[in-house]
């Protein structure tokens, strides 16, 4: 066994930290001064490493460590500090909010209660004789919304007819268009031409669209003959 192999074994021996020195290393050292010196230098090197590591690893613990940890832990329950336990309550509160919001969103107003689906809007009662245009009341609020006595729903909007003799003309407005119509009436003073168009008479030569009435006859029901017969 040459010295290089022995020195390799010496390094491995100290690196492994084994306390017992192999017999062949001891016998080789007795006859080889170079390997003996190598062994001694490595023994002191590893002793210094161990002492240095020990001083690093066993540094004194500051006395403030545990009290500081306890103080920081004081307000925190173990394993539950970041858990939120109020989910059922939060869900209830959210549901309540949704219900309240839905109630206010769909709550009928006083006017909606008074007026059913289709309402008649009474047109202005008077006409300006000189211009043949309706005299629009000052305030659009005077437009009166009244429930239609006969019909519950209509798919057409008829032009209002304004005459001197008739007490009033009516426009049938769908419930969903009522708000828009009120706004339109409110803007009429600025748009008299539009108002005139709305309230003009039907010309006599204008073809009238007639809708044929659909008659439903009673259905005659016959029993089906069975396939066996």
């Amino acid at each position: 066994m040459n010295c290089e192999q022995i020195q390799q074994e010496i390094r491995d021996h100290f690196a492994a930290g084994e306390p017992a020195i192999p017999a062949r290393l001891m016998t080789h050292q007795e006859s080889c001064s170079e390997c003996r010196d190598y062994f001694q230098s490595h023994a002191s090197l590893f002793r210094a490493i161990d002492q240095g590591l020990s001083s690093i690893a066993n540094s004194p613990v500051p006395p403030s460590l545990l009290p500081a940890v306890r103080a920081r832990l004081a307000g925190q329950p173990a394993g539950h500090s970041f858990r939120f336990h109020g989910w059922p309550l939060a869900a209830l509160a959210t549901a309540a909010l949704v219900v309240v919001f839905a109630f206010f969103w769909h709550r009928p107003t006083q006017r909606d209660k008074a007026v059913p689906d289709v309402a008649r809007v009474t047109a202005p009662r008077t006409l300006d004789p000189e211009r043949d245009t309706p005299v629009i009341p000052e305030s659009p609020r005077r437009a009166e919304l009244r429930p239609h006595p006969g019909k519950q729903r209509s798919s057409s909007t008829l032009p209002a007819e304004v005459t001197h003799d008739e007490p009033s003309s009516e426009v049938i407005v769908l419930a969903e268009e009522r708000e828009a119509f009120v706004r339109f009436v409110a803007e009429v003073p600025e748009n008299r031409a539009a108002a005139a168009g709305l309230t003009r008479r039907m010309p006599e030569n204008e073809p009238i669209v007639e809708i044929a009435l659909l008659t439903i006859k009673p259905v005659e029901v016959k029993l089906l003959e069975s396939s066996e017969e």
């Binding site: 390094r11 491995d12 100290f14 690196a15 492994a16 930290g17 490595h42 090197l45 590893f46 490493i49």
Partner: peptide, 9 residues
């Protein structure tokens, strides 16, 4: 441990 001590040495 062996590897670390050897590397340190």
């Amino acid at each position: 441990l062996f590897f670390a001590r050897k590397r340190l040495a």
